[in-house]
Design a protein around this nucleic acid. Structure first.
Lengths: 165, 165
DNA sequence: TACATTTTATAGCCCGTGCTATATTATTTA
DNA sequence: TAAATAATATAGCACGGGCTATAAAATGTA
């Protein structure tokens, strides 16, 4: 153990542990953009038939050039395939990531709704939260969703006490 | 309404709304680093008496140079004050941000514990989640925490059904 | 006091993600 | 088919936040 550890009187968690947590978040952020893109691309393909750069840019709220550049990176990483002046497609890898991302997203939204969050806020917060939920927490979210939907009629429970502001 | 909107058969949310949500997350990320720093700096000052660049770097898991550079930015933004070769201090603004960040962090951790997440995972996930919870969601989290702590002895409820895997 | 060690700072690099402005290619329409 | 419009690509710039390597100051110790 180094000196920086021995000093803390209390409160502070283990330094290596803490560093690892911060690192995890930083790395997660790396894949956030990728997840947002493939999820959106999948949605666009499903609803409109194809994912064009313009629409991607519009829905992400960035300039075309930015979207195009990022799409190029995603292609480098094997998540997406696209030819010049044509729409964007997902590779098998990209499709898998999209499915997982979408699942997470929906669980988080459902969960937030279940604890009484308004639709709008649920959508907003989920967008940021979804990338940082572990499988363990995701499973807990699902249990809460189940428990709330079961308890809906029978008798007042957590969701209700949460709803009454 | 533009053409990109008229086509969607269903599923896709309003484009502007979605763009706004993504933008919010991107901007949030801007302040994440700042929040992490001031929160950590406050903790270091409280427990060890001062916040030195080395310790900040160690606990964040980054190189010294990176920490120093970021500290310089925080100083530019008026969150921190530091003189060459001396420890780092929080400005009033920085202290406020630290307090708020710490509060959020703790609510998130308590909340995750309340729904049955292990200590380790609670710490991990909170680190990523805390920056993305709105006041509305934070309030709901607090209600859940309260509800769970009250229901602890009386009779089995959500927390228990969540714990039994 | 002088030397060694620690801490801090700086320089220079890379990458990712923004942006605007300017081609270039497709597509639509006259 | 030719011209106008829309979509895409590319170039060039900025910034944040990583990194390593190197220099300078502060601190501890022989």
């Amino acid at each position: 153990m180094t000196k920086s550890e021995s000093s803390a009187s209390s409160a502070l968690p283990d330094a290596d542990q803490q560093a690892a947590n911060f690192k995890r978040v930083r790395e997660a952020h790396q894949s956030e953009v990728a997840e947002d893109y493939v999820e959106l691309i999948a949605d666009l393909i499903n609803t409109t038939g194809e994912a064009r750069a313009v629409d991607i840019a519009r829905r992400l709220g960035v300039a075309h050039a930015t979207a195009v550049k990022t799409i190029a990176r995603l292609q480098r990483e094997g998540l997406v395939s696209s030819q010049p002046y044509r729409a964007v497609f997902l590779t098998e890898k990209g499709r898998e990531l999209a499915v997982h991302s979408k699942r997470r997203h929906e669980i988080v939204v459902d969960f937030l709704r279940a604890i009484g969050i308004s639709e709008k806020t649920a959508q907003r917060d989920a967008e940021g939260i979804e990338h940082h939920v572990s499988e363990e927490t995701l499973a807990a979210f699902e249990r809460v969703i189940r428990a709330e939907s079961l308890a809906k009629k029978p008798r007042p429970t957590l969701a209700d006490s949460a709803k009454e502001k």
